[in-house]
Simulated scan of single mutants.
Amino acid sequence: MRLPTPLLRGTLIKRYKRFLADITLETGEEITAHCANPGAMLGLNMPGLPVYISKSDNPKRKLQYSLELVELPTGLVGINTSYPNKIIGEALKSKLIPELGEYASFKAEVKYGENSRVDFLLDEQSTHKTYLEVKNVHLSLGNALAQFPDCETDRGVKHLKELSNMVEQGHRAINLYLVQRTDCDRFSFAPDLAPKYAAAALAAQNAGVEFLCYDCDINVEEICISSRLPILLPTS
C-alpha cells in the first residue's frame, strides 16, 4: 500500500485526546496532526520521538496533517489503524497470504451477526463462508514480541464472539493480526493490559476461530505485508 507522499519528518511534542498530536516540523513550524489511532500507543507517544506525517490538499479537512509513522531505534512503526484493511485487501487480490490463497473472491465490510460488519467475507457465494477480521498491531514492550491490544477493547471482544458464532453455524472464521512494525518476530495477546480480550481470545480459540499474524515491510513510501509470525496462544 502506497503512503501519501512526500511524507514530512518532524518531532513529536505530545499526543493527546487520542486523536491529536502536536509536532514540530524540520522547518521549525509547530502543527497539530490527526492521529488515526484510538489505542494507548504505549511506547509510541513519547515526546521527542521522530515521526512522519502526511499533508492533505483537501480544503474541507479540519486538520491538514495526519500522523503516519513513528521512528524508533529499532525501525518504523505504522500507527494509522485505517491502513491494515487496505494492506490486507491488496494482499488478498495478489494472493500474498498462502493460508487464504484458495479463495477466488472477497467482499469488504459485510454486515453479519448482531449489528456487526466483518472486514472481509471470502468466497461469499459458498454455502460455507469464511469470515476474516483484521486487527492492527503496533504494541511491543520489547524482546521482539508484538502484542495486542494495548488497552481493553469491547469492540474487539465483540468481534471474537461474533466469529465464534460463525464457526458454530458451520462457517470458517479467522482473526488476522497485522503487525505494523519491523522489529518483531512473534506475537501474543496482552493479558496484563487487556485481560478481558485475552480471555475472549482463549474462548474463541476453543470455539474454533483461527488466528493468523503477519508483519509488514515499512518505509516512507509504502507499507506491505511481509512474513507470517508465530502466535503464542493463551493456554488458560
Score class of each variant (00 low, 15 high):
83 Y>P: 04
91 A>S: 10
92 L>Q: 04
95 K>H: 14
97 I>C: 10
98 P>H: 04
102 E>A: 15
102 E>R: 09
103 Y>P: 03
105 S>K: 09
108 A>L: 10
111 K>W: 04
112 Y>V: 14
113 G>R: 07
113 G>P: 02
119 D>H: 07
121 L>D: 05
123 D>M: 06
123 D>L: 05
124 E>Y: 08
125 Q>K: 15
125 Q>C: 09
125 Q>I: 08
126 S>P: 06
129 K>Y: 07
132 L>M: 10
133 E>L: 02
135 K>M: 13
136 N>E: 11
137 V>H: 01
138 H>D: 11
139 L>Y: 08
139 L>F: 15
139 L>E: 12
139 L>H: 12
141 L>P: 03
141 L>F: 05
141 L>K: 15
142 G>Q: 04
147 Q>H: 00
148 F>C: 13
149 P>L: 07
151 C>I: 11
152 E>W: 04
152 E>C: 01
156 G>P: 06
158 K>Y: 08
159 H>M: 15
163 L>A: 11
165 N>D: 12
166 M>R: 15
167 V>A: 08
168 E>F: 06
169 Q>V: 10
169 Q>F: 12
170 G>N: 10
173 A>K: 04
174 I>P: 04
177 Y>M: 13
178 L>M: 14
179 V>P: 02
180 Q>S: 05
180 Q>M: 12
182 T>A: 06
183 D>E: 12
183 D>K: 03
185 D>M: 01
186 R>N: 08
189 F>H: 07
191 P>Q: 05
191 P>D: 02
193 L>E: 04
193 L>D: 03
193 L>K: 09
194 A>R: 09
197 Y>G: 03
199 A>T: 10
199 A>M: 02
203 A>P: 01
204 A>V: 07
204 A>E: 03
207 A>M: 12
208 G>F: 05
208 G>W: 09
209 V>E: 07
209 V>M: 11
209 V>D: 13
211 F>Q: 06
211 F>E: 08
211 F>W: 01
213 C>Q: 10
215 D>W: 02
216 C>I: 03
216 C>V: 03
219 N>Q: 00
220 V>Q: 00
220 V>G: 00
221 E>Y: 04
